[in-house]
């Protein structure tokens, strides 16, 4: 299970456009030419992806900083 955010906290979220619940799936994230797949909540229909606040301000911010200082 992913350690970078808690999907249980986001159970209530649905894609407003398609009106279907978001599902955990592999999504590529990238920065400064480095890319890797992670598990994120995504609309299985239109592909809308939810980036949780704690991920954006936590691990994502850390990766950004590390890659910028590389």
């Amino acid at each position: 299970m992913s350690e970078y955010f808690d999907p249980a906290k986001y159970e209530g979220w649905v894609c407003a456009d398609c009106n279907i619940p978001l599902q955990l799936s592999k999504v590529d994230v990238s920065y400064l030419g480095n890319s890797f797949p992670v598990d994120l909540l995504k609309c299985p229909n239109c592909g809308l992806v939810l980036i949780p606040e704690e991920l954006a301000l936590g691990k994502m911010a850390e990766v950004e900083k590390a890659l910028e200082d590389k």
Binding site: D28, V29, Y31, S35
Partner: peptide
């Protein structure tokens, strides 16, 4: 990328609960 959590008020304005941002891009593979 900016994220905003909000609801729409009756008077047409928007109430903001939180906002955050990141620079990593999502869904673009190398």
């Amino acid at each position: 990328t900016y994220w905003v959590e909000y609801t729409k008020n009756d008077d047409g304005s928007f109430l903001i609960y939180k906002a955050y941002s990141h620079r990593m891009e999502v869904g673009i593979g190398a």
